[in-house]
Simulated assay, not measured.
Amino acid sequence: MSLLIVGGTGTLGRQIVLQALTKGYPVRCLVRNFRKANFLKEWGAELIYGDLSRPETIPPCMQGISAVIDASTSRPSDEDILKTVDWDGKLALIEAAKAANIQRFVFCSSQNLEQFLNIPLMEMKYGIEIKLKESEIPYTIFRLAGFYQGLIEQYAIPVLENLPILVTNENTCVSYMDTQDIAKFCLRSLQLPQTTNKTFVLGGPKGWVSSEIISLCEQLAGQSAKVNRVPLAILKLVSQLFGFFEWGQNISDRLAFAEILNVENNFSKSTFDLYKTFKIEANEVNQLDDYFLEYFIRLLKRLRDINFEDIQKQKNLII
């Protein structure tokens, strides 16, 4: 089975590419910038030019392809660009996949879409889910929560740099997940006929509230965090004032995404049944505390290496 991966340079997409290559899949990546995507080529993927904002570039990418995995998402503040890519472009991607008789289309979506149709990106993702179901292409949709990788910027770095952390006064559990594990589920779905034409709400084995994540970072960093609690009502108002969001790029991004994740979900109640469907054991999924521990260990090692290099430079200057 040959794969076309859209969004291969992204946080999730690159993990899908790497694991697919490791498993022996022929992988083609739709890219706009060959220089930025060169690392994918070095891994062994084929790069082909394609741009969701230019629908005519998409059909040639489908030649010889069996399955499409779309892990892409836009991050513009300009709604016109957003519509061009995440609506018009994704519709063109589905149409091209149908014309090419694609055997499976895996779409990475977001959780709680129905509650946030007032947010343009959420509305478009919801609409694309509907269009994909109507296309008659065999599909698998994964509705995802936050990534472990995003929590580094949101919690770990502020604790380390003694910066304030904005949290709501809600205590909602969110089942964050490592992108490596999400990639594992995406690829496993291609091997399991029972996952065809299904939508799965995918989350980690444990739900975490903000206070637990902050406490974990404090323990690993050996210092206290500056926490500013913001009522959810004020969060919504501030998010509207700052406009459309862009994850990790600006304050409106973080505020809006925090609002989405603050909707109660039932990840933890159905997680183990979901893992059973995909034939994945719970101990195969990376835990958040293990992920953070590894991050802090790597960081401390890097700081020690930098300190050693500085000492060596000082010695050389003295000599």
Rank of each mutant, 00 (worst) to 15 (best):
L113A: 03
L144H: 13
R143H: 11
L121F: 13
F116Q: 08
Y139G: 08
L132G: 09
P120G: 10
R143S: 08
L117E: 14
Y126P: 01
K133R: 15
Y126G: 08
L132W: 05
R143Y: 04
F116D: 05
G127H: 10
I128Q: 07
I137A: 10
N118H: 13
E129I: 00
L113Q: 02
L121Q: 09
S135M: 05
S135L: 05
P138N: 06
E134G: 02
K131M: 12
F116W: 11
I128E: 01
G127R: 14
P138H: 05
L144Y: 08
M122Y: 15
A145T: 15
R143A: 10
I130Q: 14
K125V: 00
R143K: 15
T140L: 12
K125T: 00
N112T: 05
E129F: 01
S135T: 07
L121C: 03
I119C: 02
N112Y: 11
I137S: 07
M124F: 13
K131A: 15
L132I: 06
I137K: 12
S135I: 06
F116R: 08
M122L: 13
M122A: 10
K131P: 01
T140D: 07
K125G: 02
Y139M: 11
I141T: 03
E114S: 09
K125M: 12
P120N: 07
K131T: 13
M122K: 11
K125Q: 12
L121N: 04
M122S: 11
L144C: 13
T140M: 06
N118P: 00
E129K: 02
P138Q: 04
P120L: 07
E134T: 10
P120H: 06
E136N: 14
N112P: 00
M124N: 05
L132R: 02
Y139H: 11
M124I: 10
G127M: 03
E114K: 10
S135K: 09
E123Y: 08
E114I: 04
P138W: 02
N112G: 01
G127V: 00
R143T: 06
K131N: 07
P138A: 07
I130A: 10
I119Y: 14
F142M: 03
N112S: 13
I141Y: 04
I130Y: 04
K131L: 11
P120S: 12
I141C: 04
L144P: 10
K133N: 11
